[in-house]
Design a protein around this nucleic acid. Structure first.
Lengths: 160, 160
DNA sequence: GCAAAATCGTATGCATTGCATACTAATTGG
DNA sequence: CCAATTAGTATGCAATGCATACGATTTTGC
């Protein structure tokens, strides 16, 4: 069909730059899409100053009160040390509370503070709207397909 | 249908943690998938110490020799200031070279150094294998569909 | 029961990235 | 020619990510 002169995906985007090889990489698109979504996320959360990761942590803590730092960290594929940094920040903002476990005194049980719960409740709606807006360029069916594919990429074999 | 006791997606993953709400968010899966791929990328590149972003920058520079910092930055959705940091690091590692433009003396034209070209050549193969391996859990057709969906998310309307 | 191994929290330090701000030099538009 | 814009630069701050190391505690293996 169309015997036009220019190759299909060889030309650049809007900036006149060539990037044929990059465009073959799923990693490239994954990074760009995540970055775009993340920026929209941050903009939507500007009144609350929460990152994607912090929200995910708060949500996990809310749904699993009393979980330990390591459990939350593992669930989010985070390092113990990295988790510490986040916990400190969230503690400093009074969004969570911490208490040593009575059964296993190594563990620190984490749960939301009253402020944390209140914040999370408000934020839920904001995030839902942010997702709705950001994903409005693809259909409901495509969203499900996208989630399915993404999950397959990171929920690989895995176990022990 | 099945009147079993437990809800379909309410149960947790492998860790016993509940995360129903999070799983509805495309942003959550996008972040997790990107993180997983990124880690695999870093592991694959351990001999070269290049990040995804650095590789993308090098590739763009290679394909568009003489491009300015701002052009590369824009193409990768990067900030001018952030780009500076990366340029400094790449210069420090002798992977790129810089020269003031003779037409527009504000511009710094960037191009790969000999070492940069050599590195990029070697790295291409490594990345191709990394992508092949990481994406082996989904079919060729699914990869294309995934790329298509991701692009739609970040190549939105956009213009001015 | 006890010593060794594993686990959890903690602290430090380092690198990458992202963004805001501000300043200089150069170019472009009126 | 002057004002606005653009490119590069420098600084500083925050969030991550990861490595390493140490103390306290619990669990295992014998």
């Amino acid at each position: 069909m169309d015997g036009k002169g220019f190759p299909p995906d060889t030309a650049a985007d809007g900036d006149g730059l060539e990037r044929t090889w990059l465009k073959k990489l799923v990693g490239y698109h994954l990074r760009m899409a995540h970055l775009a979504l993340y920026r929209d996320f941050v903009a939507a959360m500007s009144d609350f100053d929460l990152t994607q990761k912090q929200l995910a942590a708060l949500e996990l803590i809310a749904t699993n009160p009393g979980a330990s730092q390591v459990e939350i960290a593992n669930a989010l594929s985070m390092d113990r040390a990295t988790m510490m940094g986040m916990v400190k920040r969230l503690l400093g903002r009074d969004l969570i509370e911490r208490r040593a476990s009575e059964i296993d005194r190594r563990r620190q049980e984490i749960r939301l503070s009253a402020l944390g719960e209140e914040t999370l409740n408000t934020v839920h709606g904001i995030i839902d709207r942010h997702e709705e807006r950001f994903l409005s360029v693809i259909s409901e069916h495509e969203r499900e397909e996208l989630i399915r594919l993404l999950r397959r990429l990171y929920e690989r074999g895995g176990g022990t």
